[in-house]
């Protein structure tokens, strides 16, 4: 089963008919609400680190008043969406891969096909829709938390002038930047979900429990690498 075959069938299953609302909601709540605590913690520290490290770098060159510029560009355009994608890959992607792989090795997926239920439509499509729907929301949330954390670290901890910092943020961050971040979230969400479902779906039955581990591991690594590379390509197209 090749990846191309899987993507083609998943796309057909995803767009031919909308998934049942109840299934979609269950997976969306699981992926979205379940990740909020983790995402808040990580993005808060990532935002504070961004400000502290930017300050450290700019102090050497004598330009600490440009910290707002640095946090705006580095954070909203790049770091926060990518961190959200890494968190999403590590938590949502790994969960999807582990659950599908577990179903595959315990032959539940075959049982579904025998009963005449298309596993692509019943298992994969609702998960894809759920993650595609929740990831942009998580990315928007990450922007809010991350910027607040950067602001907190810069103004409260490091004593950067509050007016300069927020004026620079307002100048450099436009609505387009926030929209790009959210749009990146849609792409990251779909990719993480499809990669995780693919690795879960093709877990080798004869390997048993080891197959679940391999599927989880591959889902995390492949989705992270793909998201980071895609982020570079998107940034190069949009900002260069």
């Amino acid at each position: 089963m090749s990846f191309v075959w899987f993507v083609r069938h998943a796309l057909v299953a995803q767009f031919s008919r909308l998934p049942p609302a109840e299934q979609f909601l269950r997976h969306a709540v699981d992926a979205g609400v379940g990740s909020v605590a983790l995402l808040t913690l990580l993005i808060f520290f990532a935002g504070m680190s961004l400000a502290v490290q930017g300050y450290g770098a700019f102090v050497r060159m004598g330009g600490q008043e440009f910290l707002g510029l640095f946090c705006g560009i580095g954070g909203v355009r790049e770091l926060f969406p990518v961190m959200a994608a890494i968190v999403c890959g590590a938590r949502i992607g790994a969960n999807l891969a582990a659950s599908l792989a577990n179903m595959q090795i315990s032959e539940q997926i075959e049982a579904l096909s025998v009963m005449g239920i298309d596993p692509m439509r019943y298992l994969v499509a609702p998960r894809l829709w759920a993650v595609v729907f929740t990831m942009p929301l998580l990315c928007a949330y990450a922007d809010v938390v991350g910027l607040s954390a950067s602001y907190f670290a810069a103004v409260v901890q490091l004593g950067v002038d509050q007016g300069t910092f927020s004026a620079q943020l307002r100048e450099i961050i436009r609505w387009q930047d926030l929209a790009v971040g959210v749009g990146k979230g849609v792409a990251f969400g779909w990719l993480v979900a499809i990669i995780a479902c693919y690795h879960g779906y093709r877990a080798a039955k004869q390997e048993g429990a080891a197959g679940v581990g391999v599927a989880t591991n591959r889902a995390i690594v492949h989705s992270t690498v793909v998201c980071i590379v895609l982020n570079m390509i998107l940034s190069a197209i949009l900002y260069a």
């Binding site: 590590a90 577990n102 090795i105 315990s106 581990g213």
Partner: peptide, 10 residues
């Protein structure tokens, strides 16, 4: 069992 392995990795 197998689900636990996925949980541990995750």
């Amino acid at each position: 069992g197998a689900a636990g392995v996925g949980r541990a990795a995750n």
